[in-house]
Amino acid sequence: MGRRNLSFLIGCALALGCSAPSKPAAPEIADLTPIPHDHPPIAALPDPELSGGHVGRAPRRISVAQLKASIQTTTGRQWSQIDKLAASLGSADYALVNAEATEPNLVFAKFLEDGAREVCLATAQADLAESNPDKRVLARDVAGNLADLRQLSEQTRRDNLIYLSTRFWGQPLAGAELDKWNASFKAFAERAEVAKKRREAWGALCIAFMTDPRFITY
């Protein structure tokens, strides 16, 4: 600690030219020995300009196989049409199509919305019938039975949204974005209770998470 501070001060002094201002000092023999420090060695980063703008891993859309596994992992059920639509979603068969297409395009987005609707509404329905929160997918942080959604506390809503964003995206919601999602969930809850379609509130939330770009990119 002391040695590091001392080195730092010496460094500052050298860098800022800290010296007695009164009279010009006689020229001294410069000491060019590097000042010792205990910073670990730093590996040089590749120059982005020489690397096509890249310095790390390129973000990309998940493949169809990863999408299938993601849906199963996050919701515990499978989209019934995914194998049938695999080629349209970009899957390669390596007989006639040799490369997996992972461009985020409208066809993928449209089919994913269909899949999210199927999977999410079924998941929401199952959650409503489940009294044990630990066995639920969408409402794990809501204790007891899933009654009137308008009665959920602010903290419960927020905790559950953080749980869902972690589950679906691996990115816990926070800050202003969490506020926005919280407001949306409140609106879903209001409408669902008025329309007496509680399943659709949870389903809409699930669809929003599954169709978010953070679900299909990594």
Binding site: R57, I62, A65, Q66, A69, S70, Q72, T73, T74, R140, Y163, T166, R167, W169, G170, Q171, P172, Y218
Partner: peptide, 24 residues
Amino acid sequence: VPIERQLRQLYLDLLGRPPTIEEY
């Protein structure tokens, strides 16, 4: 960057699936 995101990347690349909530 949150550790959850690193974990998701690693799981998707190595296992072909994201982590479960229990794994997070």
